[in-house]
């Protein structure tokens, strides 16, 4: 945390500097504004307060060794995986919202419904990919314990799917159904009921 605090304090100092600089630059409306009512006065005040708070954070972080940015142990593998998941989620979601919606790619403009269908499908498949075998085994055990006769009848009919592919095929099928249902319902509600011109 001290390292993060150190970096945050530096970013906050930059923000404060920006507030003061922009506040200073703002016009006084050609002398029409009375002294004290200038639009830049409050940004300058806030910039100074944020700078003071950032300095306290900086001093505290330095006191805790936060300025030694490359010292200390490397990230644990599990923590690294968590970070990768967070960054991938943020990047993927941002790409769908800002990079795809309302834009044409290579001259092709997909509608809101298709893009939303694709987004949900890809999200679920990527997020559940490593869990698919475990979820499948749990589901099989549940069916076998609750309805053994039905399980015995279904198993031979699914024999054409290789055992290793089974969990992933199920994942793809259910994700497709869910994505189609959600995309259709959201599109219908907002376009037909709320009269929103979808992006």
């Amino acid at each position: 945390m001290p390292r993060a605090d150190f970096l945050t304090a530096l970013v906050l100092l930059l923000v404060a500097l920006g507030l003061v600089a922009e506040g200073w630059r703002l016009p006084g409306a050609g002398g029409l504004i009375e002294e004290g009512g200038e639009p830049g006065r409050v940004p300058i005040f806030l910039g100074l307060v944020i700078a003071a708070l950032a300095l306290v954070l900086l001093v505290r972080a330095v006191g805790q060794g936060g300025h030694r940015l490359f010292a200390g142990e490397p990230l644990a593998p599990e923590r690294r995986r968590m970070l990768v998941r967070a960054v991938a989620t943020a990047a993927g979601c941002a790409f769908y919202a800002v990079g795809l919606l309302g834009r044409s790619i290579f001259g092709i403009s997909l509608g809101y419904g298709w893009l939303t269908f694709g987004f949900i499908l890809v999200f679920i498949v990527i997020a559940e990919w490593d869990l698919a075998p475990e979820i499948s085994a749990r589901r099989r055990r549940a069916i076998e314990s609750r309805a053994p006769a039905a399980a015995a009848r279904i198993a031979p009919r699914l024999a054409f799917v290789p055992a290793a592919w089974g969990p992933y095929a199920w994942l793809a099928l259910t994700a497709t159904l869910q994505a189609a249902a959600v995309a259709a319902v959201v599109t219908y509600v907002f376009e037909q009921q709320f009269y929103v011109t979808l992006p």
């Binding site: 919606l101 309302g102 999200f123 959201v186």
Partner: peptide
Amino acid sequence: ERLMPIVFVLCVIGSYAIQQRMFDV
């Protein structure tokens, strides 16, 4: 994992729908 993409789709369309501009997204 099944719920979060739906939540995000609602976040996007909800932000957009009120003023119907991508800036809010």
